[in-house]
Computed example of a mutant assay.
Amino acid sequence: MTACSLFSYIAIVWMKMVPMQTIRSRVQLMKISALSLVFCGSVVNGNVSLRYLPVSFNQEIGATTPFFTAVFAYLMTLKREAWLTYVTLILVVTGVGEPSFHLFGFIVCVAATAARALKSVLQGILLSSEGEKLNSMNLLLYKAPIAVVLLLPATLYME
């Protein structure tokens, strides 16, 4: 995240790849902070789940991210998918199974997967909402330093 912050700053300020955008309101800053927090939750929970679950099972659960994305998109933006999409997602979710099951590992892995999906929805809102629209490079510029600050305690504790 530190490298993302640095490189996005270089790309915006020095290389002028996209125009610099400023944070326009406290609400926009809170949305970016929430996005960073959700991102950090997905990273921490994903790493913790690997302590309890095999990587293969972790990947199986991660394959359910589109299901959570569709649910969060509907709950937050009322965006509906085609009925065939929901049927397909049910098939993906019900295909998950693993003999080396650990309940805590499963819970944190599902939390990480849900957080990844929520991050996608929040990011989509910040990239497209008319009043607070940021381009992806500027969003990364503001999100990454917040994520560094939020991940630092977990990194120091876990690593």
Rank of each mutant, 00 (worst) to 15 (best):
E98D: 14
L141D: 01
T88M: 10
V48H: 06
T22V: 07
M17R: 12
S120R: 08
G131S: 14
L35A: 04
A73M: 13
M17E: 10
V108N: 07
L126G: 01
K16P: 04
V87G: 10
L91I: 12
V87K: 08
E81G: 06
F104V: 11
A114G: 08
Q123A: 11
G124D: 12
V71E: 03
F68Y: 14
L35E: 00
L103R: 06
T94F: 14
S33C: 11
K119H: 11
K16I: 05
A114D: 02
A115T: 03
F57K: 00
V48R: 10
M15L: 15
V96S: 09
V108G: 04
F101S: 07
L53W: 01
Q28E: 14
F104P: 03
T85S: 11
K119N: 13
P66T: 06
I107Q: 06
N138I: 07
L140C: 10
M76R: 10
L140I: 12
T88V: 06
G41L: 15
S33R: 04
L37A: 15
K79Q: 15
E132N: 12
A63G: 13
Q21Y: 02
P66W: 11
V108C: 13
G97C: 09
A115Y: 02
N58A: 15
S100A: 14
T94I: 15
C109E: 12
V27M: 06
A112T: 06
L29D: 00
G97F: 13
R26H: 07
T94D: 07
L118Y: 02
T65A: 15
I146K: 00
V55C: 05
L78E: 09
V121M: 05
M30N: 10
M76G: 11
L29N: 00
L126C: 06
E60H: 12
V27P: 01
